[in-house]
Design a protein around this nucleic acid. Structure first.
Lengths: 254, 254
DNA sequence: CTCCGTATTCCTGTATACAAAGGGAATACG
DNA sequence: CGTATTCCCTTTGTATACAGGAATACGGAG
């Protein structure tokens, strides 16, 4: 009866985080369909830990926004409209804009901005690559994520870090959510070039303490993601490349 | 041994929310001092529920940001610097600014804005009161909270609602956090007048679909809270009036 | 054939038992 | 006298047992 497929050495310290990771994967990969109720026992059977950590994991995922509490108790997998995805991206943009502005207004030491410059240079290399292979794009994803993380650090604000971390927990709201989807599109290279220019200009703005400019740039930068969402929605195969796409229910695509 | 003082009819549906409310109160009132570790058993003794709901409550409060997880397990009461308080207010301002802008850009029906107008009128009455009694201010607090809540609703964005709700969970970041502290200050009436004008102008901006103006106004509006914080820090007795002040450790005030 | 009442079954919320790990204090050794 | 070590106690993480309640399925009646 109990088919424990997921025994693959999830040697994460605690049972709770193991459960959290496992369930999150189940949700994100679409194994569990949106709207479906999640019973604790089924998770116990699947993951192989007791109800207590499963329960903790569900609670955690509900705060993250992947699940929604049911009034009769328990949780269901949340479904997102494309509009909500857009709004989530906008929120991220606004918060990252605040981060950039704070960094600019307060001023940052050159030693603090150096890692950003290095990251920028590495991104330049990746964008400069002639071949548009999948490897190139996944390398871009990694570097891009690091760039954004470093930028938030630059603001040096714990509360803001927390809030942004929360905002990008929704996988389709993260800075690199649509990059992989881009990889299949003809305009891919152009978009990457523009995004990279945003990165460069933001660093310049921060260095020269142009707070307002830094903020506007980050907002506009997030708009690239919005545009990519629209592009990705054109075909199912492209759409499937964005993380957490299983949670998004659109009118046009089944 | 077990002195269950808090038996005062906390008839909240579940034990978990009861524990959550009780512990939050303990933290906010300063009964538990910042930095102090919270042991589950001590909460069990105090509140009178078992470890399971206490544990759930602690987890919840940690996500809310009132507690911070310890690497050795368990939680400690988080302490906030005045700078972090300022940043939290700034975050709220930015998010409420986004809400106002979204409402303005999308356009709202007059039926939707009517409750805001009514709330505005009621606020006018309160601000117009001649006596500056405590009752007046606490009435202002209630109406002000409602106004801000309605404004967020106007944006009609679930993700944004969630994010803002999270932002104002920190009690000193809520829109009315410093109003009661104001009540003891001579410039109180003037500040209320200005705040109320912000409210009025934001509604006008939204009605006329002036997104950028609506956003700027809400940001500036939140700056009133920042200024009030600076004012409130001048004396201990004033400072004590702000909710959650026990969590804030400042250089100047013990 | 359909609708309603009832009983059963599953599920969550809560409490408790158990084990491992961390912290602290006392003691022994250098 | 200072330092390191060891032991004990406290605390958390995890598992399980129990009770109340909701959803469902089944059976009977109209």
């Amino acid at each position: 009866m109990v088919v424990a497929v997921e025994l693959e050495a999830d040697r994460s310290g605690s049972q709770t985080v193991r459960a959290q990771l496992a369930i999150r994967d189940l949700v994100l990969t679409g194994t569990l369909t949106p709207g479906e109720r999640i019973s604790e026992l089924s998770m116990v059977a699947r993951i192989g830990v007791s109800r207590t950590p499963v329960r903790a994991a569900l609670l955690r995922l509900a705060d993250e926004g992947l699940l929604e509490p049911l009034r009769s108790g328990g949780f269901a997998i949340k479904a997102f409209t494309d509009r909500e995805v857009l709004e989530s991206i906008e929120i991220r943009g606004v918060l990252e804009g605040l981060a950039a502005r704070l960094a600019a207004e307060r001023g940052v030491a050159l030693t603090a901005i150096a890692p950003l410059r290095r990251c920028l240079a590495e991104l330049d290399e990746v964008v400069g690559e002639t071949g548009a292979s999948v490897e190139v794009f996944s390398e871009y994803v990694a570097l891009n994520a690091r760039f954004h993380a470093l930028l938030v650090e630059l603001a040096d604000s714990r509360p803001l870090e927390r809030q942004i971390e929360r905002a990008i927990t929704l996988p389709f709201a993260s800075p690199s959510a649509f990059v992989m989807a881009q990889s299949t599109m003809p305009e891919a290279r152009r978009i990457l070039t523009i995004a990279q220019d945003h990165h460069r200009c933001v660093l310049d703005a921060i260095e020269q303490r142009e707070g307002s400019r830094a903020e506007s740039l980050m907002r506009e930068h997030s708009r690239l993601a919005s545009r990519n969402l629209a592009l990705a929605l054109r075909s199912q195969s492209t759409f499937d490349l964005v993380p957490g796409s299983a949670l998004i229910r659109t009118g046009s695509i089944a």
